[in-house]
Design a protein around this nucleic acid. Structure first.
Lengths: 236, 236
DNA sequence: ATCAACTTACTAACTCGTCAGTAAGTGTGG
DNA sequence: CCACACTTACTGACGAGTTAGTAAGTTGAT
């Protein structure tokens, strides 16, 4: 992040003239960000071109670069913009706590059934981000990290509310939290590819409930002998 | 077109000559497929080039095109090749049934912790496949469909074994099956981006157990009031 | 001698990014 | 209040690079 406002530029006794964006610029930049979201969603980041983004707002690709400098920085800006919009849209300006967070997650899944475009953008970018040196990798990683922490904390709050006496250490909470995030993302992929075959919101709600139940019930006493945490095999 | 000696090749009138590949060709093609798997995994499909694939086996990109015709067909061949290898590697040539399937899924997750390359390839291709007109979309969609059916069937087998008297209709089984597939894929994304923070196999085992438990216990009597299947809100 | 399995050479299409130029907007000194 | 100084917000042209795909020629196995 660099200079935007500060009065640091005073090279000589001269006159520092107008140095601020115009009135309609913020709006125009948001148009570009929306267009970029559409393009990166439908074509992916690498395959989506600046020209296609530019065309949607009626300028050339050089005009887009004028605002964002490079394609990588445009992607980052898109992601940060979505973060801002998503948080603002939340009435209260903060992430819900406790059980309310899980209700929020299910509500979001239900809303997402009516906006496949946004789901597609998130899924495409997240999927691409696992490739080497992808510009969105840091953002996605951090997003996952924050989500894990929020969900883990919310889980322990729910446990406290219900005075469950299972010991919920960080490892257990993280395991459940990453599973919940995973199931949400994984269901989105399946749903995008085959909307008829997958009930996005219902499956999400079901899975979250299942994972919460298992966590609060104490997963160590599971009824199914699947996990063998100590096994290590070192073959090819 | 007068092959007087061999009376074995005469499929129809005219066009087909003696058209057989050489001995080492099958092997060479598999080298190319392995190289393509590596490249598509680390760079993604669109961003990975034929030249990089070719370089790994010591030929030029035109040589790769000689064998597979186009980049799209190479991708399809890679996916079909992995299918064949994965099934062959399974001792028995068929997918396990009943509880054994779930043990197999967890074992696979545990194995995958030692082969991030393959996980990366699957994750990258699956992620990219949700973009418009992607050549892998059909393959991924079909793979999900088959997996949902296998897992759903296995779930009902487990229920029958334990003589659970919950009614497990297709919708319920599909819901659980897609959740299990989702959590496996979603955990892989998180794990690839941050291997220190996510325990791939443990989280997978935990989530599968949780979802199985909830399904067999009858999800309708859940302890958490999250799912509101009839709610429809039409706000912005 | 024929054909698979290449290579070399090439094309046409795209890509992002840079640059110079320009019209229009903005703040300030006088 | 207005002309000048200066910036923003572009356009259009272009460069450098990369890409998949084609066409034609070469070599060596069978």
């Amino acid at each position: 992040m660099e200079s935007t406002t500060a009065a640091e530029e005073r090279p000589a006794s001269g006159t520092a003239r107008a140095r601020r964006p115009r009135a309609a610029t913020a709006e125009r930049r948001e148009e570009i960000l929306s267009a970029a979201m559409r393009t990166f969603g439908s074509r992916g980041y690498h395959n989506g071109s600046l020209a296609e983004v530019a065309e949607q707002v009626g300028i050339t690709h050089a005009g887009v670069l004028h605002h964002f400098g490079s394609k990588d920085r445009l992607l980052i800006a898109v992601l940060e913009f979505r973060d801002r919009v998503d948080v603002e849209h939340l009435e209260g300006q903060h992430i819900p706590e406790g059980l309310e967070l899980f209700r929020h997650l299910v509500r979001t899944a239900r809303m997402n059934e009516d906006r496949p475009g946004i789901v597609q953008a998130y899924t495409a970018i997240t999927g691409e981000s696992v490739t080497d040196g992808h510009p969105a990798a840091d953002w996605v990683t951090e997003r996952f990290r924050v989500l894990r922490e929020s969900i883990g904390t919310a889980l322990s709050e729910v446990a406290a509310e219900r005075s469950v006496e299972v010991d919920l250490d960080r490892a257990t909470l993280d395991r459940a939290a990453s599973a919940i995030i995973g199931v949400m993302d994984g269901l989105q992929s399946q749903w995008l590819l085959d909307p008829e075959a997958v009930r996005l919101a219902d499956s999400t709600a079901f899975a979250i409930e299942a994972i919460m139940s298992a966590t609060l019930a104490g997963s160590a006493r599971a009824t199914l002998p699947l996990a063998q945490p100590e096994e290590h095999t070192g073959d090819s």
